[in-house]
Simulated assay, not measured.
Amino acid sequence: MNVESSESLPARIATALAEQIIRGTLKPGDRVRQETVATEFNASHVPVREAFRRLEARGLLVSRERKGVYVPLLDQASIVEITRMRAALEVLALRYAIPNLTQNDIALAEAAINEADGCQDISAWEEANRNFHSSLYRPCNMPRLLANIDALHEARLRYMYATATMVEWEAKSAEEHSALLDAIRARDVEAACALLEKHIDDAGEILVAAVGALQP
């Protein structure tokens, strides 16, 4: 999950609230009150407002004029947007990373597949999933691109937690990850990029359907 690197009070407040929003402790549609957060962190309203601003920029809070600050609702359009952006950016990262991938990077990706296979909950599985993707993208050596990819995974993670009881990701992802890794070992850039794009698109379609089933 993407977290603030700074140890400042606004950063710590933003990190704590982001965790609550992503895991569903703060539910879609909940109002987040400045006064409550300020009391919880023994802080003035200034760092709380800054934390809110950072979370709004990350899409984890939304401000309604004269009505306060709320956790955004889960919506299918957001998943479509996140999926399209992921497909574009992650394929770009992979394309530039493959020439630089070492045997150690590939071993880390393989270890992440095995790690995911033994996970018992969505939190542990998603961490292994991110380790797999990160090990393949990191050698692209494009820090801004990687930061944007991390932000998209954070935005997606809220939907993963909300639909965790409805979707079984393990077997499908393990098979697709293994096929992707085979193409990478063969240094077949076009095949690897095509497999990654389909992997991301298929996952997005599954999330869209799952969120649709959540709607009353």
Rank of each mutant, 00 (worst) to 15 (best):
E4S: 09
S5V: 12
S8Y: 03
I13L: 00
I13M: 01
T15K: 08
T15M: 07
L17T: 04
L17Q: 03
E19N: 12
E19S: 14
T25F: 12
L26T: 01
R33C: 07
Q34H: 10
E35G: 04
T36E: 15
V37I: 15
E40N: 09
V46E: 07
P47N: 01
R49W: 00
F52H: 00
A57K: 15
R58F: 10
R58V: 06
L61F: 05
R64N: 05
R64I: 10
R64T: 05
R64G: 02
E65M: 12
K67H: 10
K67T: 10
G68W: 04
V71R: 07
L74T: 00
D75V: 11
Q76L: 07
E81A: 13
I82Y: 02
I82V: 07
T83N: 03
T83H: 02
M85G: 05
A88V: 12
E90M: 08
V91K: 10
L92T: 13
L92N: 11
R95W: 05
I98T: 05
L101F: 03
L101G: 00
T102R: 01
Q103F: 09
N104Y: 14
D105G: 00
A109I: 02
E115Q: 13
D117S: 15
Q120M: 13
D121A: 06
S123M: 10
W125T: 01
W125V: 01
A128T: 04
F132M: 05
L136M: 06
Y137W: 09
R138C: 02
P139L: 01
N141V: 05
N141K: 11
M142W: 04
A147V: 04
I149C: 01
D150M: 09
H153T: 06
E154D: 08
R156L: 12
L157Y: 08
M160L: 12
Y161A: 01
A164T: 08
T165Q: 13
W169S: 04
E170G: 12
E170C: 10
A171L: 11
A174N: 11
E175T: 11
H177W: 10
A179F: 08
A183V: 03
A183P: 03
A192P: 01
C193R: 02
L196Q: 07
L196S: 03
K198T: 14
D202E: 14
A203D: 14
G204N: 02
E205K: 14
L207C: 03
A213Q: 15
Q215D: 06
P216M: 09
